[in-house]
Design a protein around this nucleic acid. Structure first.
Lengths: 169, 169
DNA sequence: CAAGAATATGTGGTCGGCCAACTAATCGGG
DNA sequence: CCCGATTAGTTGGCCGACCACATATTCTTG
């Protein structure tokens, strides 16, 4: 049938910022977060890490040898997620795992030399992404964004039962 | 030169928002987005959907029968992601796929009756989550958050090569 | 009109992430 | 002192998401 594309292609003179797509903050948040994750993934891939692993390494750099259960709680992840991630990271040589002598159930985790070698790269990537993310925003806008994200996070954390990711170490 | 000094990398003992974790907007953004995704996942599970599928259904509700490639572009996803997601959703009965008579490579996708039956629930979930997310924020704050997210999204989209998720249908 | 480029989709593999179910070790009472 | 409850970790399964690669079909262009 001719006239191929029927509806849909509304001649919407789209806004300068397609922003939320649907217009809701939820849409915008999901969209921005995805772009942010992709952008971080790009930087991490050059370092030999996968998204999510950098948070693990950060905890290890800050805390030294830690019990796996501490990582689970501080990152707010599922135990199985942490187990599998650590297995892969151990095989990559970034992490060392050893049984806790004080509790034969537990496992102590610490960064290896190779893991520590990633620190500068990861911190640089975070800083670079932060700047790229906030480019063009005045300090006041940045502070406002941080404040609003904090409020929204508080709302969602309350609903979700107060999950981890709290204070640093 | 890098006269840009006022970056928050200061070892400020500030705690305006305990939420942000590391204190950077990037951390706060990732954290909030994860909570948001989990909260949406909860609501979707009660409806019989997995996170991400609701966006697919929304496009189908808005556009009727669409080529798979249109979905790929409008959602900004990888083709293989869409293929597999649609295979599962078809098996769940939410979606119907048929070869495009006009282009034997393409596949036309549309929501089934069962899929359309989810619409009210999904839209309710979005509205509910939006309100829960923004609880306690004045209209001015909500608008400001939307504006800032739009700016940040623009920055990230620019870096990422202008990916999809743009205008609505 | 016959290559070659571009498009549309599918496969296989890997990762992060969650849930459910399981084992092993420690802790708490009775 | 022993048995149940709690905690720590692991395995298997599933889904979203990506990449690399393979296939079929259309478009382009010489």
């Amino acid at each position: 049938m001719p006239g191929t594309d029927p509806v849909c292609t509304v001649p919407s003179a789209e806004a300068p910022v397609p922003a939320g797509c649907g217009g809701t903050v939820s849409h915008a948040l999901a969209w921005v977060a995805r772009l942010h994750r992709i952008a971080m993934g790009r930087r991490l891939r050059d370092l030999g890490l996968y998204p999510g692993q950098e948070l693990m390494m950060m905890r290890l750099w800050d805390c030294g040898a830690v019990r796996q259960s501490e990582l689970i709680q501080s990152l707010g992840l599922d135990p199985s997620t942490v187990t599998k991630m650590l297995q892969r990271m151990e095989q990559c040589g970034y992490v060392r795992r050893s049984p806790d002598p004080a509790d034969r159930r537990a496992v102590l985790v610490e960064a290896t030399e190779a893991g520590a070698a990633l620190r500068a790269g990861v911190e640089g990537a975070w800083a670079d992404l932060e700047e790229s993310t906030l480019a063009g925003l005045a300090p006041a806008d940045r502070a406002e964004l941080a404040r609003l994200l904090g409020l929204v996070g508080g709302n969602l954390a309350e609903e979700a039962g107060e999950e981890g990711a709290g204070p640093v170490c």
